[in-house]
């Protein structure tokens, strides 16, 4: 598969310690990649390195097979659109003037304005914009030249649920047209709905590079049974299945094949089942659990 971006053993050290530690990952073209991790993990730094905004000490960064450094990054100018940290706007210019400043083709401006539903305020000066309006303009600037790769740092910040949904749909539409996305977000539920690949960053290192479905398989899947009498249900299960050593009604994945037997036993003993839930119902839980596992192992 064609790679749009490649990072190999990228390290960046500042006087107060390592910011990036041997970062390596590839982004296949045509995907929507999520980059997640706690605050200060190095997500924005990775993005800045990819854009040639930061000088790295070791390793190589390539976009579209061309080397990117802080001194040479013409490929970024030609092939990448980005929104890093906050939308960077001139308060004395209108939204339209911003797009005109950064676009290569005026026709593309009206298209992106309509797609992001910005027509009502695009001719206003940005000093009058709300946070959400600024965020949308920042995203429009990143998308206006139809780049091959779009890097969005926390794009959902300040967006109301309707706008966030519209943005998700636009990202998916642009992705279908061939644009690759690398998106960081703390609102992981938002990412979960659209990403095809995920990179987890922690302490300046890549913890995992995988797909959301693979990620879910990596952690211990548990099923939580809730009844109208949990104590009685547990006692019943321990009598009927003494070898299983159940300590609670949270059933680990290694016993999941027995779930039907457990439920049947509970029903047969006149205990009412109130709910049966998958403990790992979202990406956020999965990621946090996985990071906890990693840090426990390192200790």
């Amino acid at each position: 598969m064609e790679k749009i971006a490649e990072l190999q053993n990228v390290s960046l050290r500042k006087h107060d310690g390592k910011i990036l530690d041997n970062i390596s990952f590839d982004l296949n073209a045509g995907g929507i990649w999520g980059i997640v991790g706690p605050n200060g993990a190095g997500k924005t730094t990775i993005m800045k390195v990819m854009l040639g905004l930061l000088k790295y000490d070791k390793g190589t960064v390539k976009i579209d097979n061309q080397l990117v450094t802080s001194k040479k990054h013409s490929v970024v100018r030609d092939q990448v659109g980005a929104l890093i940290e906050n939308p960077s706007l001139y308060p004395y210019l209108t939204g339209f003037q911003h797009l005109n400043l950064y676009s290569s083709d005026k026709k593309k401006i009206s298209t992106i304005v309509q797609q992001l539903k910005m027509t009502n305020y695009i001719k206003q000066k940005t000093k009058l914009y709300s946070l959400g309006m600024k965020q949308k303009l920042g995203i429009a600037i990143a998308l206006v030249n139809c780049p091959k790769l779009v890097i969005l740092d926390e794009p959902m910040n300040g967006l109301d649920p309707k706008s966030a949904r519209e943005l998700r749909m636009l990202i998916q539409q642009k992705n279908r047209e061939g644009t690759t996305f690398l998106i960081s977000s703390h609102v992981l539920s938002e990412l979960q709905k659209i990403i095809t690949g995920i990179i987890i960053v922690n302490d300046g290192k890549i913890s995992i590079e995988t797909t959301p479905s693979e990620l879910k398989k990596m952690v211990n899947n548990q099923v939580i049974i809730n009844t109208n009498d949990n104590d009685k249900a547990l006692k019943t299960l321990n009598v009927l299945f003494p070898d299983d050593g159940l300590k609670s009604l949270i059933i680990d994945s290694d016993k999941s094949e027995k779930l039907n037997d457990y439920l049947q036993a509970i029903i047969n003993n006149d205990i009412q089942i109130l709910s049966v839930n998958d403990s790992q119902d979202d990406l956020e839980n999965t990621m946090l659990e996985l990071m906890q596992h990693k840090s426990d192992k390192e200790r």
Partner: peptide, 18 residues
């Protein structure tokens, strides 16, 4: 200074190559 204050320096550096 305004380019650094507003963060617009990022756009300029990306476009300018150096």
């Amino acid at each position: 200074t305004s380019e650094f204050q507003l963060g617009t320096i990022k756009h300029l550096v990306i476009q300018a190559d150096s």
